[in-house]
Design a protein around this nucleic acid. Structure first.
Lengths: 183, 183
DNA sequence: CTTGCCTATGCAACTCGTTGCATAGCAGGA
DNA sequence: TCCTGCTATGCAACGAGTTGCATAGGCAAG
């Protein structure tokens, strides 16, 4: 549904090749929207036939040519329409929450394995939070009034930071609860 | 991937028909895993052929018959295997975050429409938090040591509550940021 | 010098998930 | 009385997303 629109936002912020988009989706945009290179290439071609984006062939030395995509006026219009439309309630998939409730039907060994998994998972999120905080210090060093784009990027990043802090606190709660089951 | 396992957990907690499962997925389990009745019926049939679940025909007066599903031993074993496996990093899709970054490319009217949408979205999450808190008071009134199943259900619910509180605080931040753009 | 990784794009096959529709009896309200 | 909605299951078609593989040159480490 909204992959097109996520790509439009990314291209308006900075024109890019499909490959570069895929890497940006792995990094900053991937905070709130994941996509593989396959999806991106396919959707870009569909958007091209719809006139939402245009490509410019860029030759490179010692590397394959790439196509630099930009948002076309029709794409900007489509984005404006989409911004006006109601926000879809997000479809949540928290595998870990399912596993935690499933732990009620595991034996002691199974729960011990889950504790180890939750610890690993917690370490991943701790590393992610550190990356976000480093990115914030790098990209938004002063609290002074920035332009609209930076202000909005920053508030989305603050959302990512708040999410990670909440997850870490909850995982501590989960670990304490799991450990209390077996003393 | 894990819909099978979410269904197994739900059936271990309480055997149910496909229809009842779909409604539970709309309510409590839907906090962390969404599924439509179509998916559930299809997956149940696949799980039946795999021997993970068994059905018992239940006649009802004045209503269509239903099939009450229960987890079979093979299903419990499959669940135990899955609990041991590494947790997949969650695939995030936050449409609202994309829209907020997209607001940088909207005009004043477009941003005003987004503010109204965010307010509506915030009201939905406020109502959800109230429902979670009411459910917590109802199902977990005393802090005394409960059984494993209740303790794990409770910690997952606390996760939902923490998530909603975090979202509400962030949405206030978003609203303040959006409003500051146009004074 | 060979192995593996990076840039860059793409096909094919598959699974997962959504949407619209159908059936069918019963209950409750306008 | 008609209309809407609930229980209960299901088909068919489509769209979204994943996985494995292919190509093809360059670059760096071992």
């Amino acid at each position: 549904m909204a992959l097109e629109h996520a790509i439009l936002v990314a291209l308006l912020e900075q024109p890019a090749s499909g490959y570069e988009l895929a890497r940006r989706f792995d990094r900053s945009i991937g905070r709130f929207w994941t996509a593989t290179h396959q999806q991106i290439y396919r959707v870009l071609r569909r958007m091209e036939t719809d006139g939402w984006v245009t490509a410019e062939q860029v030759g490179q030395e010692g590397r394959p040519d790439k196509r630099r995509w930009s948002a076309a006026p029709a794409g900007r219009a489509a984005l404006a329409d989409w911004l006006d439309a109601p926000v879809q309630p997000e479809a949540v998939r928290h595998e870990l929450a399912v596993k935690i409730r499933g732990a009620a039907f595991a034996d002691r060994d199974g729960r011990a394995a889950l504790v180890a998994e939750v610890e690993r998972y917690r370490a991943d999120h701790e590393a992610l939070l550190a990356r976000y905080l480093a990115g914030e210090r790098r990209d938004f060093p002063d609290a002074a009034a920035p332009d609209a784009r930076a202000a909005l990027q920053h508030v989305v990043l603050r959302g990512g930071i708040a999410y990670e802090r909440m997850v870490l606190a909850w995982l501590d709660d989960v670990l304490a609860t799991l450990r209390a089951l077996d003393h």
